[in-house]
């Protein structure tokens, strides 16, 4: 079982236009999202009720271990359901900029969550697209 450090994956990610775009979006919003999860009651409840910590642990592990797969469902909650409900509560409670980002990129993220079983597979998808993602293009 080969172990990957997340830093190695990050290097691969930012080698592509879409990867850099995602990194920029991540850096722009990560603090706000963490603050909402830790301090906003509505966001906190949705995150925990829909097993956010469990899914995030699996996702991180899937980045560390190439063959590890994130379960699609834990205790009756699907990963896409968690993401959809978090998108709703974050856009409701976050800044206008966060709401705009959620509106623009939620479809992309939800489709990855549906199609891919690990962070590795998500990164593979990103590497295949040799361009930035523009919301609304066919």
């Amino acid at each position: 079982m080969k172990m990957y450090r997340l830093e190695v994956l990050e290097e691969q990610l930012v080698a592509t236009p879409l990867g850099r775009q995602i990194r920029d979006i991540f850096e722009e919003h990560v603090e706000e999202v963490m603050m909402l999860i830790n301090h906003n009651r509505q966001v906190m409840v949705i995150w925990h009720r829909n097993l956010g910590p469990e899914f995030i642990n699996h996702a991180v592990r899937s980045g560390m271990e190439k063959d590890f797969e994130v379960p699609r469902e834990i205790k009756g909650i699907q990963l896409t359901t968690l993401l959809r409900r978090m998108a709703a509560v974050l856009q409701e409670n976050g800044s206008p900029a966060l709401a705009r980002t959620i509106g623009n990129y939620s479809v992309l993220v939800l489709n990855w969550a549906q199609r891919c079983n690990s962070l590795h597979q998500v990164f593979d998808e990103i590497k295949k697209i040799n361009a930035e993602f523009t919301p609304g293009t066919k």
């Binding site: 856009q91 709401a99 705009r100 509106g103």
Partner: peptide, 18 residues
């Protein structure tokens, strides 16, 4: 339009699904 008064159609769909 992609968005109206700061809300995109996807923002609407996400909220309504919830």
């Amino acid at each position: 339009p992609r968005d109206i008064n700061g809300y995109s159609f996807h923002n609407l769909l996400i909220k309504m699904s919830d």
